[in-house]
Design a protein around this nucleic acid. Structure first.
Lengths: 211, 211
DNA sequence: TTTGATTGATTGATCGTTCAATTAAAAATA
DNA sequence: TATTTTTAATTGAACGATCAATCAATCAAA
């Protein structure tokens, strides 16, 4: 079998196998042997190309981040207006291929793992900061900076929340419903903050009882 | 040392130690020995009271779900109006004691683990369904059923999203900022859906380019 | 013949789990 | 009260299984 120039293909299939294995076995219980078998190679080869289990998992995470980022970047390049840029970011986060059960399982695991792994944490923070920054910038067309920052953080939270709640559902992912939920948030927030700014008497949330 | 009636105390401290250990080591790398040491007992005792590592982790999850549920129930009992009930649910989800780094780490791990563990999945689904049901019921005072259901799902997503994004931050958790974000969502959604229902010309989200 | 790809048996360490032995509080007995 | 017996709590050493990582041997394309 040994043909020349196998490395790229092996790396690709091992990373894909890692995502599937996490989906099926769970991040904690996944073994190199399972991943390798799924990729159709021996366990030794995974070490040969990635060095260690940790590095394979890290490479998988970088791959997912990269794919998501590329998808969003492509959509942003086509967007003509600030409002269209907002929609591009939102839709990019729920692109088919990303918003799949196996990928969701991997993301969840990485979020969990990033809490104790500095390298993973750094990656996620950079991605998250860029997302919020992009959102804030586009929102500035509609809102003053403090409001834009608030809504950007809210939008990022809503996106992550829709992702995480996917992990609990049985029905197949519904990107359109997900997008609608986030778009509704953005739309309503723009209206609400504008109304507040214009001094309209808007009903305030009930503070409830003190804790 | 052996005094009588230690079981309740040991169970409590072992569960507390489990949460802390997950926080420090990460769910995957946590060992019975570490948890036991943190609780000040031997590894054997953890098995004596919980049977296995899996059962200890499951008990910890049930404990967290129970605490969160009790907190919300207490707040709901004091709420007088539908709007106050909404705020009670939201505030309950960010109660100090729940909205802590260690607890967040544990929740994240459980969400990830629930994907492959049917028992954990069932627990999370039941909790999630109850949350959405409570939200929907209170929202019915402001919105027709389909809208109420949508906003309830959105609120649950926003709560989960704010939680998960906590895991990425460095600064200590800020319950008030978290509550404000979710309250803003609810408030704005009620206004938006009412405006749409009353036939007002509301700007629609930019559909963007087809995927 | 050379070279990179690939394997699979092996190793070494880790960790969940078990269990026989030990401790000291509580209960029973003298 | 003093002493013995009982009982639950607790330990820590030992076992067995799992798995990441290594590496010498093999294979086939160049």
């Amino acid at each position: 079998m040994p043909r020349i120039g196998m490395e790229a293909e092996r790396r690709r299939s091992l990373i894909a196998a890692t995502v599937d294995a996490i989906h099926e076995q769970g991040y904690c219980d996944v073994t190199i042997a399972q991943i390798a078998r799924k990729a159709g190679v021996s366990g030794g080869l995974a070490h040969h190309y990635f060095g260690s289990k940790d590095q394979l998992l890290a490479a998988t995470m970088r791959h997912l981040l990269h794919e998501l980022g590329e998808g969003i970047r492509a959509r942003l390049a086509e967007a003509q207006t600030p409002r269209a840029r907002l929609s591009a970011i939102i839709a990019g986060n729920f692109e088919t291929g990303q918003f799949r059960e196996a990928v969701i399982a991997a993301w969840l695991a990485f979020y969990s793992q990033a809490r104790t792994n500095p390298a993973s944490q750094r990656l996620l923070r950079i991605y998250s900061a860029r997302l919020v920054s992009n959102l804030t910038h586009s929102l500035r067309s509609f809102l003053p900076l403090p409001d834009a920052q608030l809504v950007a953080e809210g939008t990022a939270s809503m996106i992550d929340g829709v992702w995480i709640r996917r992990a609990l559902k049985e029905a197949p992912p519904d990107p359109e419903a997900a997008i609608r939920l986030v778009e509704d948030y953005v739309e309503a927030q723009i209206l609400l903050h504008r109304a507040r700014a214009s001094g309209a008497t808007t009903p305030q949330p009930d503070p409830g009882l003190p804790a």
